[in-house]
Each structure stands twice: as structure tokens, then as C-alpha cells.
Design a protein around this nucleic acid. Sequence first.
DNA 1: ACCTGAACACCGTTCAAGT
DNA 2: ACCTGAACACCGTTCAAGT
Lengths: 202, 202
Amino acid sequence: MAAAIELADRDGVDAISMRKLAQHLGVEAMSLYTHVRNKSDLLSGMTEAVISQIPISIDDADWKTSLRQMALAARSIILRHPWVPTTVEMQAAPGPAMLTYANAVIGILREGGFSVAQAHHALHILGSRVLGFTRDLFDDSGDLDPETAAGLARELGASHPYAVEMALAVTHGGALGRCDDDAEFEFALDFILDGLARLQSS
Amino acid sequence: MAAAIELADRDGVDAISMRKLAQHLGVEAMSLYTHVRNKSDLLSGMTEAVISQIPISIDDADWKTSLRQMALAARSIILRHPWVPTTVEMQAAPGPAMLTYANAVIGILREGGFSVAQAHHALHILGSRVLGFTRDLFDDSGDLDPETAAGLARELGASHPYAVEMALAVTHGGALGRCDDDAEFEFALDFILDGLARLQSS
DNA sequence: ACCTGAACACCGTTCAAGT
DNA sequence: ACCTGAACACCGTTCAAGT
């Protein structure tokens, strides 16, 4: 399992095949089937192993800081295993580690005074952000060299002025510095947590 | 392209292979390579074809109703092609249709009075929700028959009380009716749009 | 320009066989 | 209990050949 995680971290999850993993372990491909039912079983095992590393916040802080702590902790762990979002989405049913994590999140909300219905809404709103990741529509932390960026701007400026304006502002530090994914994640997280506080008290 | 979309709608995107698609078209697999560079080119073509169907709202309503309209329209189209979220995430670079869509969203925000920085934040917060989909952590619109549900509750109730409480409330209409994905999506969307309005005026 | 067929280097998985 | 090797039914893609 550890070997598979290491291999996925290095080469990406697409590079994981029974044959390659076996080779990585100095063994024949079919030997893996004694330890794992099939490939999807392997992938859930890897996913569960990572999820179970996310610390569940136990201290009795208020729900907002607890949730914030957990989401940021989750993010820092998942950043080290960038393939996890993919494998999480591939799973049909959540494993025990995932269930424990979800139970902790719901528990924080319920103990914080959310009704079941409110907590349910909150889960839908937080979506995968409680797990520390957001599938961005596209990478805007781009590193284009200035000349190709200028070329693109000239080509697309007429048809997509707003997109180009933002891309330019974000990539080479115009008004905004280059897009800071960490800061952007925290901003979105706090935006949601503040909204949930308002939802609860309304 | 249309044939590929039809096949993916019917059998899922995993069932799409050059060989199967060719067979579906009554042709040999290698013939496809005259119309498409490779498989990933095929998948982006399919994705782009669907994205380009999403109507860009042109009427001069305020930004909130415009964005709401677009997100709901996007959702209704993507619901008919459930594989699109997957293929969107697989793409390295956004195609023209995706760019046009993003430009429209940013344009609505900018014309609605958002600064570039605010619009940038808004994009990160909306995430894939502007495209009408959210990857839920897990399906909670489950349809378990009552007895296995009761069994699960007994088994997990001790270790995961909060998760079980919510699952029971959501699945067989306790306090909440069974989880209505449409309503839940609209709720989350409005939650975000209201928050963005507050962000803008602060 | 479009289609074909054979071929190559991969997959996941089974099964019978070994220790 | 754990590992192996051959085999099967698949992949995406190349290349030379046809019309």
C-alpha cells in the first residue's frame, strides 16, 4: 500500500498499473492479487490510507475554528498526494476512513448548534472543500513567459476581453499578485464558514 | 462527435474506446484517426460540443439573476450528459467553448460592478458550480431498502452516530424528505450568490 | 482525403501450477 | 498463505497499404 502511494506521488495515478506496481516491489504482477481483490480495491486502499491521516480535531473550539482547522489540515495532507481527489471521486462507496471523517464534520456542526437539516445543507455547500480540495475549472496559476502571454492576449482580447483581463491581472502581477492558491483556498473557505454562521443564526 | 456523445450518454465514458466507437459507427477503429488526433482529442471534442450548448445569458438582468440563470441552464444540460464533469477535469487546457463560457461569467461579474480581484475570488468560490455541477463527497440520495438500512444503522450507530443520524433523516423521509438534488443545488447556489453580493458591497 | 489490416506495446484478470 | 507463468480479452496508436 505504502509502495503504491509512493509510486502515485512520483508518477501520477495514471501510471499505476498492477504490472508497474509489482515491478516497483520486485515481484510479479499476479502476486498482488493475494493482497488485494482487484485494482479498484487497490485504489480505495490507497485513498483510505491517506484520508485516515487527516487529524480529526478534538479540542473543544467552536465549530467554525474546528472546521477550519480540519479543512486546512486535510488540504495540507492532500497537497502531498495530488491524486487523491481523483481516486476519491472514483470510489462508489466511502470506506471506513472516509465515513469517520464525514462523521467528524457532521458532529462538529451538530454540536455547534446546527440542526440536521442545516448540517445537511452545510455539507452540500462545503462539498469537497471540507476535504481540502477544490477542482478548479482551470489552473490560473499559470506561468506563461511574457511574450506568449502577450500573443495570447492579442489573439483572444477581442473575443474574450474579460477572461484576458483577469488572466493578465493574475499571472504577471498587475493589480493582483500572481494567484496564490493557498490564500485563495482560505478565502473561499472563510467565505463559506461565515455564510454558514449567518445561515445558522437566521 | 455526436455518435460519441450518444454512446457516452448510454454506456458511460469509461465504455468509450476507439474500437467500440468505431463499431458503433460501423467502421474500423483506425478510421477515427482521420478525424481526431487521438483519444484525448476525441474527449475534448465531446466536452466542447456539450459546453457550447450552454446558453450565455444576454438579457440585461442584474448579475445575480444572470449568473443564476446560467448555472441552472448549465446544470440542466450537464445532467443529460453526466460524464461531462469527468472529461472537463481531464482536460489540461480549456477549449474555445470553455473559454467563451468563462469569459461570459467573468463579464457578468465585471459589468455587475465586481472588481477584477473580486471577480477572481468569486470564480474560485463558485468553482465548478457555475458549470452546474458539484462533485458530492458521496451520494446521499440513496435508496436502501428499510431492513438493510436498519442493519447499517445498528452496525455503524455506535461508531458514527452523526453520520447515521443524517443518513436516516435524509433517506427515508424523517424530518427532511428524501434528499432532493435539484433543491440542494439551488440552495447552495443561492447561498453563494448571496454571499457574493455581501462581498461586493463590503 | 478517407478507410483498412496487421502489428506493437501495453492493460486487468483467470486459472492451473508451484512452494 | 504466498508467488509464478502462460493465457485471454481487451486497450491506444503506428505504419504501410489500399481507394
